[in-house]
Amino acid sequence: MIKITEKAIDVQKVIDTACSLGAGAVNVFIGTVRNTAHAKNVLWLEYEAYESMAVAEIKKIVDEASHRWPLLGSGVSHRIGTLKPGEVSVVVAVSTPHRRDSFEACQFIIDNLKEKAPIWKKEVFEDGEEWISAQPVRAVEAQS
């Protein structure tokens, strides 16, 4: 399951899609809209996506994860449209036979989704707005 949606994400459905009876671990990342950024109050976020390309890119990321770790199941859903603080913006769920693989695969998928999928975010504040382009994770790690 890979889904881009304007509707609220059914977190349990994403988890259920990823679950497998052979799994010893199910790992879930739930991204939510925070109420502050850059020391400003966030009123809402606006997400836009090139949907067909985003789905295709996420599929490539999940496929790569399945070559690195023994994924038994996976599910990814990302919201687009206007989201207020507290709302769920993205859910990634994976199942694997063992927990370490589950944690690593889930992190790999969300990090690469943020870096590579054509999904854009605009933060709207009390005094303006700003389009946010995700900085590649690898570049951030290299700077540390």
Rank of each mutant, 00 (worst) to 15 (best):
M1H: 11
I2H: 03
I4K: 10
I4M: 11
K7P: 10
A8T: 14
D10E: 13
V11M: 05
K13I: 01
V14I: 12
V14F: 02
D16A: 06
A18N: 05
A18V: 08
A18R: 06
C19S: 13
S20G: 02
S20N: 13
S20D: 12
G24P: 01
V26M: 00
N27Q: 12
V28T: 07
V28R: 01
F29G: 03
F29K: 03
I30L: 02
G31F: 05
V33T: 06
V33L: 01
R34N: 06
N35W: 04
H38D: 15
V42S: 02
W44I: 00
W44N: 14
Y50H: 12
Y50M: 03
S52V: 08
S52M: 11
M53H: 11
M53E: 07
A56T: 12
A56P: 04
E57Y: 00
K59D: 14
I61E: 02
I61T: 07
D63P: 07
D63N: 15
A65S: 09
W69N: 01
W69E: 08
G75Y: 05
V76K: 02
V76W: 00
V76A: 05
R79H: 07
T82K: 15
T82R: 15
K84A: 10
K84C: 07
K84Q: 12
V88T: 15
S89C: 12
V90I: 14
V92G: 01
V92K: 00
A93R: 05
H98S: 00
D101N: 13
S102W: 02
F103G: 01
F103E: 07
A105W: 03
A105G: 09
I109N: 04
D111K: 09
L113N: 01
K114N: 12
K114F: 11
K114V: 10
E115G: 13
E115R: 09
K116S: 14
K116M: 14
A117I: 09
I119W: 05
I119H: 03
K121D: 05
V124A: 03
F125K: 08
G128N: 11
E129N: 09
W131P: 02
W131T: 10
I132M: 09
Q135C: 06
P136Q: 13
P136S: 11
V137N: 13
S144Q: 12
